[in-house]
């Protein structure tokens, strides 16, 4: 029984459809990676799942419930969180305030969650009272993920979390993604660094021109010579 089921969706930004039939399926507790060349519709897929653009055809199911074209606020309450690729922190708010804003929909006491996020991302603890805009790129990415985790989501959507980071930070972020996933959160991420990402993925989806091209487990895709030739740079 799959947890997230995306069935043949078509979507775009008002003009022509960018997604022309994308399907994904993810079981609870897995890491799913969407990879593919530029313009394949990777980020568009993620945004469509999170209700940021209109899905004209197809359906999206979360845990068996139809969530197609629901508004982001409702999806946050339904247990989803989204980390955009850029502009993903509130720069003038402190790290702590960023986390509090992540928990905006919660009316209960979320103090323990802040502690857990500081345990996940130790560098943030000492910077708790610094404005997020003053942090380094990697630390900002941590704040962004921490903000998204505050609602204790069951499904975390990450849009290119390593974009623009140095290789050292990149592997650190991948480690964090694995750690978050081990704590029980299903992750669906878009990645440019397909090789590294597929290495930690349970399921991989390679898109091209708005359609599925290859689907399989991370290991299968890494082993597939055609995938390697066309999409992983040999």
């Amino acid at each position: 029984m799959s947890f997230l089921e995306v069935c043949d969706i078509h979507a775009g930004y008002g003009g022509a459809d960018i997604l022309k039939g994308v399907s994904l399926s993810l079981r609870e507790g897995e890491i799913g990676v969407i990879a593919g060349p530029n313009g394949a519709g990777k980020s568009t897929t993620l945004k469509a799942v999170f209700g940021l653009l209109h899905v004209s055809k197809g359906a999206i199911l979360l845990d068996g419930n139809d969530i197609t074209n629901r508004r982001p606020q409702e999806l946050v309450r339904a247990g989803m969180s989204f980390v955009p690729q850029e502009k993903n922190v509130f720069p003038s708010l402190t790290v702590l305030e960023n986390l509090e804003m992540g928990a905006f929909v919660r009316r209960d006491d979320y103090g323990h969650m802040i502690e857990r996020i500081f345990d996940f991302f130790p560098p943030l603890r000492e910077k708790a009272h610094q404005p997020a805009g003053e942090l380094s790129g990697g630390q900002r990415q941590m704040v962004a993920m921490g903000r998204a985790l505050m609602t204790e989501p069951r499904l975390l959507l990450l849009d290119e979390p390593t974009a623009g980071l140095s290789p050292k930070y990149m592997s650190e972020i991948f480690e964090h993604v694995v750690a978050v996933n081990r704590s029980g959160v299903t992750v669906l991420m878009v990645e440019q660094n397909a090789r590294q990402a597929l290495a930690i993925a349970h399921r991989g989806f390679i898109l091209a021109s708005g359609r599925n091209r290859h689907t399989g487990t991370g290991a299968e895709l890494l082993a597939d010579p055609e995938v390697a030739r066309s999409f992983l740079g040999g």
């Binding site: 989204f82 922190v89 509130f90 992540g102 903000r147 609602t151």
Partner: peptide, 9 residues
């Protein structure tokens, strides 16, 4: 960041 505010619920 109005977009992120909306995304955060």
């Amino acid at each position: 960041n109005p977009d992120l505010a909306r995304l955060s619920g």
